[in-house]
Design a protein around this nucleic acid. Structure first.
Lengths: 239, 239
DNA sequence: GCCGGTCTTTGATCTGAATCAAATTATGCG
DNA sequence: CGCATAATTTGATTCAGATCAAAGACCGGC
């Protein structure tokens, strides 16, 4: 460890997590200086390209990660190849399944991303020793559960149009707003991925997007860049 | 509190939770004798009939519960009346959303049930004081998250036949097996509820059930009682 | 045991989304 | 740039599941 970075740990609390460069994730914010110091010794910040797999479905993973930048998709694949995206994660979310080694889903960078990688054993120990960390991870798990259940409603009961509007609204909500009501953003997902998130085919996704465009609900600057003049209108359509 | 029941707390650890009558739920098993004693003073065991609402969507709840017997369904309702069941809970599951007062879903007894009701404030305090309790609730939240995501795959990517087979397999798994492969059980859900769980209509559910019956995959003794000669066959069909 | 209501099954038809097919638009690369 | 390849859009047709309709089956109450 070089002098410059080690200096960080000499200053008073709260201390910045070096790997996370002060953008505290769920994990770093809950740890003491000593724990941070130890965690940093065994952590790694990594840039990964879109499509890189972080965790593979059916495999044992000995790492957890924190998302520092970019979007990560959680996928489940059936033996015959059918696929369902079961969640999107954004910075500063934690990626991994505490208490169970084998993963029932894959985690893959949807966009180029940066993640902070921790060894599983070390973090498991810290979770046991640090109620505040456990509480934060518990809290994130509950938020993901709420989101998953909200999405179950979308998958089970919404029409194709409502599904597409729901997705655009979801992503629009994570983008920083331009004005009080309007937003613009780059879609982190291809049409195929959107279809796999919504339980539709790419043709249906495309058709619904053009319908929304023709109605003036959205502008499609290019297939990945979307402008939403009125986010509330999208919410209304998603029912 | 009468003498007989107070005596329970004089015996050595592990102590039985009086409300739970020794069938320790997630909560009781994590608490010290003193905590159990206090919790018991403010808890109530309740028998509730099928259809009783435990938590209402959109309301603030000041209680948590433990399921002691029966099945509880978690539902989300859209403004226009469309409904989606987003989870089933069995004994000894915990019901409630720690850290957030307002519920985004309703919890309702699917069958006659018995629950153990705790005051929210008291249990919240105990969660904060008891890492082991936090850990157990965290663990349950993660298990529910896994189940929710598995169900998202069902909702988004499985056919009607696969959906119905998935549900029967899920419930068959929670019933005690008759032999190594065969099972029989009472369905805790009506056809309407099954449809709301699977994102289908009741007609489609009914048709798929008769198809499975005609193929010999299941026997329908009466609309609520199902015999499954080979549970693996159901799993195979659910893909 | 009969009656009214509810739940479930079955049948006929319709429709939203899937599938099949092809054109069009991006994207990267030598 | 210009070509090859992949991604997206658009069009024609099909089909799984929804909707509409009606006939059983079941259940509680009298």
């Amino acid at each position: 460890m070089d002098v410059a970075s080690s200096e960080i740990f000499e200053t008073g609390t709260p201390v910045a997590c070096r790997s996370c460069q002060a953008r505290h994730g769920v994990v770093c914010g809950a740890l003491s200086n000593a724990q941070l110091k130890e965690l940093n010794r065994h952590s790694m910040r990594r840039k990964i390209g879109a499509g890189s797999e972080i965790i593979a479905q059916g495999s044992e993973s000995s790492f957890y990660s924190n998302i520092m930048r970019g979007v990560v998709k959680l996928c489940k694949m059936m033996p015959d190849g059918r696929q369902q995206i079961v969640g999107l994660q954004f910075a500063p979310d934690f990626v991994g399944r505490p208490f169970v080694r084998e993963s029932t889903l894959s985690a893959e960078a949807a966009t180029d991303a940066e993640i902070c990688v921790f060894p599983r054993n070390l973090l498991d120990r810290m979770i046991g020793e640090t109620p505040e960390l456990q509480r934060r991870l518990h809290d994130q798990a509950l938020n993901e559960l709420d989101a998953a259940r909200e999405w179950m409603l979308t998958l089970g009961r919404r029409t194709a149009e409502e599904k597409v509007a729901s997705l655009l609204h979801l992503i629009g909500t994570h983008a920083e707003p331009q004005t009080a009501i309007s937003t613009a953003f780059d879609l982190p997902l291809s049409r195929t991925e959107i279809a796999d998130f919504l339980g539709l085919t790419i043709e249906t996704v495309s058709r619904q997007m053009t319908r929304l465009r023709k109605r003036g609900v959205i502008l499609i600057e290019n297939s990945r860049h979307i402008v939403v003049p009125d986010l509330d209108e999208l919410e209304r359509i998603s029912a």
